[in-house]
């Protein structure tokens, strides 16, 4: 079975952003950064796991110099002239301290070692550089819904915060976009065949999961 985000139906529902909340959620996070002068014209911005480049397009509108980064070239930023790097988050081909702004949306939860990814992002960020991270929150107890699911990478708020701190980030602000996750889940349930997704609908039903957007700053 293909991962959820590579399935046609998911892509059709989630749109270009390939994560809950879509462009609107990303924009809300970026606006917060801008309001706090952490996102300014001319900055170097990298989307770690850029997918089709929806958030990069937003960053470009804000006047950032953008770079997309994804593990495979095949589905990243099709039909755009966005500079694209093909690399693994655990080994970024970027100089230390060379980036002003990082974006990492719904990527950490699918990594086997999210801390390694965060540490790499912290390395390439300039001191006091900001990073927008969004991901799944919730408790994964293992036996709840035996089905394999991309929601298995979810962590509790406390676990995420510990990860960020361990990687050397300060948590500036959190936005709760859980309603968007429910909406996405409802769309998948409506249009899809439940059995064909590796998606923990029953966990979502029991309100186990949420979707968070954090704004972090390298310490």
């Amino acid at each position: 079975m293909k991962p959820l985000w590579e399935q046609e139906l998911f892509q059709a529902i989630a749109g270009d952003s390939l994560h809950p909340g879509g462009r609107a959620a990303s924009a809300e996070g970026l606006q917060w950064l801008r309001a706090h002068q952490l996102l300014t014209c001319g900055q170097w911005a990298v989307d770690f796991g850029c997918g089709r480049g929806a958030t990069l397009a937003l960053l470009k509108q804000y006047g950032c110099r953008i770079i997309g980064l994804d593990r495979t070239r095949s589905h990243a930023c099709p039909g755009t002239d966005i500079p694209l790097i093909c690399a693994d988050l655990a080994h970024l081909p970027l100089r230390s301290g060379s980036i002003d702004l990082g974006v990492c949306e719904c990527v950490l939860s699918v990594l086997s070692d999210p801390l390694a990814g965060l540490l790499e992002i912290a390395r390439v960020l300039a001191p006091c550089g900001a990073c927008l991270v969004s991901d799944l929150s919730g408790e994964v107890s293992g036996q709840a819904c035996a089905k394999a699911s991309c929601l298995n990478g979810a962590k509790t708020l406390a676990q995420w915060q510990t990860l960020f701190q361990t990687a050397g980030f300060r948590l500036l602000h959190r936005q709760d976009h859980s309603a968007a996750l429910r909406k996405l889940g409802a769309q998948l349930l409506w249009y899809g065949d439940k059995a064909r997704f590796d998606f923990d609908f029953c966990g979502l039903l029991r309100q186990k999961f949420g979707y968070q957007l954090w704004l972090l700053q390298k310490e």
């Binding site: 409802a186 409506w190 609908f201």
Partner: peptide, 12 residues
């Protein structure tokens, strides 16, 4: 069926 599932998914 589906309606009930989706309703309860969206209701908090």
């Amino acid at each position: 069926g589906k309606m009930l599932e989706v309703e309860s998914l969206l209701e908090e």
